[in-house]
Design a protein around this nucleic acid. Structure first.
Lengths: 127, 127
DNA sequence: CCTAATCTTTCCTGTAGCTGGAGAGTCAAG
DNA sequence: CTTGACTCTCCAGCTACAGGAAAGATTAGG
């Protein structure tokens, strides 16, 4: 399997697959005589795993940890849960901040008449 | 006023103030004979304006627009409102995505026993 | 007046996670 | 044999700065 097919199978851009190899996240098993990266089923599974983890907002480093746990058959589910729970905390913190932000901004947008005149509570608040 | 005092007055790191000058967002009025940037009251007000707009999550480019409206006494509040409303939309979209993400992840964390055994719904879902 | 500490300057590098492009080589089909 | 699709490496750029080096400027203390 060349990189193009592997990328398509994993649902990732070719560039990204190459990037993951560069940073040592998911490396292709070997190369052809002419230097083409070959990917096997196992590598494609890892790529897809990473893609889904990234969709969940896990960082590359978190993906690296999850991947090693994914590979390690003697892992404990507690390790995985700890990573996921920490990540969940981050998400919830970001949610709180975003909510506060939204409320204040929404308030300003509502207060602004949005007409031809220069009076604007939004700018007043910022200035 | 040297850059240090201006930065402190505006509540920004010196590095950031210099960066804003580099990208032409808020430039210092002039330089001393020895090359020190001088900041006056007006420049400091602009810096503080940008800081607050950044706190609201406006991008640098949005800040640039807001700043020119802030400076423009013949502006219409509709222009400002349009930028803010667009930004509000972005924030709300991000909120929706984050909420969906959180729910799914929270579900997985709840489903995971988190014990010594390798069975883990989180990895099952990702793999 | 000298010195040490603090401030400021420019320039270069790095961050996260890729994305785009140039230029060159490879492969499969017709 | 040619054409088009694929792949390679390397380099640059994106956001919004932060860190640090080396050198000059300024200020306070003695």
């Amino acid at each position: 399997m060349n990189i193009g097919s592997a990328a398509k199978a994993a649902g990732l851009p070719v560039k990204t697959v190459r990037y993951y190899a560069d940073i040592g996240l998911v490396e292709a098993p070997d190369r052809t005589q002419t230097g083409y990266r070959r990917y096997d089923e196992a590598a494609v599974r890892k790529l897809a795993f990473v893609r889904r983890a990234r969709d969940f907002g896990f960082s590359i480093e978190e993906c690296r940890e999850l991947l090693s746990l994914y590979e390690d058959k003697s892992r404990s589910s507690a390790d995985v849960r700890a990573i996921a729970a920490a990540h969940l905390e981050e998400i919830e913190e970001k949610q709180r901040q975003l909510a506060a932000l939204r409320d204040e901004l929404a308030h300003l947008v509502t207060a602004c008449r949005g007409d031809d005149r220069p009076d604007c509570p939004i700018l007043d608040r910022l200035g």
